[in-house]
Design a protein around this nucleic acid. Sequence first.
DNA 1: CGTACTTAGAGTCACGGTGACACGAAGGGG
DNA 2: CCCCTTCGTGTCACCGTGACTCTAAGTACG
Lengths: 250, 250
Amino acid sequence: MSRTIELAEARLAVSTVIFAREPGVAHGEQPVQALQPADRSLWIPLVRRLREPGEGRWALPGGWLGAAESLEGAAARTLDETTGVTPRYLEQLYTFGAPDRSPDERVVSVVYWALVRPEETSGAIEDPNVRWFDADDLPELAFDHNEIVAYALGRLRTKLGYSQIAHAFLDETFTLAELREVYETVMRRPLDPANFRRTVEASGALVETGEVRTGTPHRPPKLYRPADPAEAGIQGAFRIPIAPHLRRHP
Amino acid sequence: MSRTIELAEARLAVSTVIFAREPGVAHGEQPVQALQPADRSLWIPLVRRLREPGEGRWALPGGWLGAAESLEGAAARTLDETTGVTPRYLEQLYTFGAPDRSPDERVVSVVYWALVRPEETSGAIEDPNVRWFDADDLPELAFDHNEIVAYALGRLRTKLGYSQIAHAFLDETFTLAELREVYETVMRRPLDPANFRRTVEASGALVETGEVRTGTPHRPPKLYRPADPAEAGIQGAFRIPIAPHLRRHP
DNA sequence: CGTACTTAGAGTCACGGTGACACGAAGGGG
DNA sequence: CCCCTTCGTGTCACCGTGACTCTAAGTACG
C-alpha cells in the first residue's frame, strides 16, 4: 500500500489580511475627505512587491516563519514590520499550499486575518510601497491574494453575526450608533437603529458606562463598553450566536 | 526596522480527523451489537504510533506533504494509506505550528477533517494499529491531538447548523428519520420528528425520489435525495443557514 | 383474519424574536 | 425661540419554532 513519495521542500510563509474602518496614511486616491455613511467601506493595507515573482504587484503583508516563533507571532511580527500596524484582533484564516501558487519554489502560506481600530492605523508606515485599498475594489494582486482577501471578507461577514468581533473595530467605549455603523459597513446594508438597539441590549454583550458623548450637534448618546473585554478576541468554534437576523446580508 | 530572523526549518505534515456514524472493522471494545438510538455517537479512526515521539500512543492518521501534491491531496492520500478510508467530505480545519508541539524537530501540521458514509468504512484496513474510538470518549493521544479533535468536533457541530454536510454521512437516498438521526447524533440531543420534518422540507434542501423504503416493520418512509448533490461538499464561508434552531445544542 | 403496535407524516396552537413604524427626549444652530 | 437632527422608547403584526395531537400505513401476533 505504501508508495514512495518525494517529500516537499516547501518554504513556510505567513501573511495577513488586515481590515480597518478607515484607511491609514496613504491610499489610492486623494486624501480622505469626510466620508458619508453610505460611502463607508472596509480598508486593507497592501505592500508593493519589490522583487520577483510578482514584482510591482500589490500583495498581502507577510514574511517567512521564524525558527522560534509561533505562527500567530510570525503574523504579528511581519505585519508590523511591513505596515507598522498592531492589530487588536488576529485569527488564523486558512492555509494555502497549491503546488503551483508560486512559480519557482514551493511556498505554503498560513494566512491570518486581523482587525484594527482607527487609532491603531495612525502608527502606519508612510511609504510609497504601502497603500490602503477599498476591500471591495482591489486591483489585481500578486499570486492568489485576490482569492485570499475574498475568503477573508466572507469570514469576517459571517463571524460578525455570531461573535463580538465588531468591538475590535472600535475604541474602549463607543456609542450604539458607532457599533451599528460597523455592522452596516461590514454587512453592506442599513440597519434599523431602534431594532438594532433592542437586539444588542438584549444580548447582554454591552454595559453602559454611565457617561455620554458630548459635543455632538444633537442629543448626546450614551457610551457603552463590551461586557467581557476579552470576548472580542476569542477565537474558535465555540461561540453562541447573538442574533440570527444579524447574520443575513445580501 | 528589519531585524535578522533565523528562519524555521520546519517539516510540513498533514493530518485528518475522520468522523463516521459507525465504527469500522475494529474498535476499542467488543464487536458492535445493535446500537440503540440513544447510544449513537461519532466514531474516529486513530493509528498507533510505531516510533518516537509518542510511540505507543494513538494519533490522527497523517503523513508528510509530497512535493507535487496539494494539501488536500496529501490529506486524502495519507488517510487512505493509513486507514483505508476514502472520505466523501474533506475540508481544511486549522494549521497547528507551535514551536514546541513536537520534541525533536519543528513540525507544522495542516489538519483536515472528513466525513464518511457507513459503507465507506467497510474498506477500512484491518490492523491492530488502527482502531475506531468514540469521539466523545478518547484516550490520551499523542502530541496535541486531543485538542485538535475537540476543535474539529466543535466545527462539525457548528457547521451542521448552516450547511448540508449532514448529507455526507448518508447514502445517495435516505429517509428523514435517518437524516434526523445524524443531527441527533452530532448535536447530542433528541429532535421532534414532526418539527424536524417541517423545517427540513421548508428549507428546500431535499427532493423526494418518489420511492419508499420497504421491508421495514412499520409504515414505509419516503426516500429523499439532496436537492443539489454537490452541495454537501461545498466549503467556505458563503453559506446560507438552513434554520437557526438546528444550530443550538447543549 | 383481525387487533395491537410501531413509525410515518400532517395538522394545530401558543410563545417569542424580528421588521416596520410611530413618537417623545435632548441637544445645537439658525 | 423654533426647527432641525439624532437618541431612545414603545407598539403592532408577522412568522419560525416548540410542544402537542391525530391520522395513515405497514408488520407481528393471537
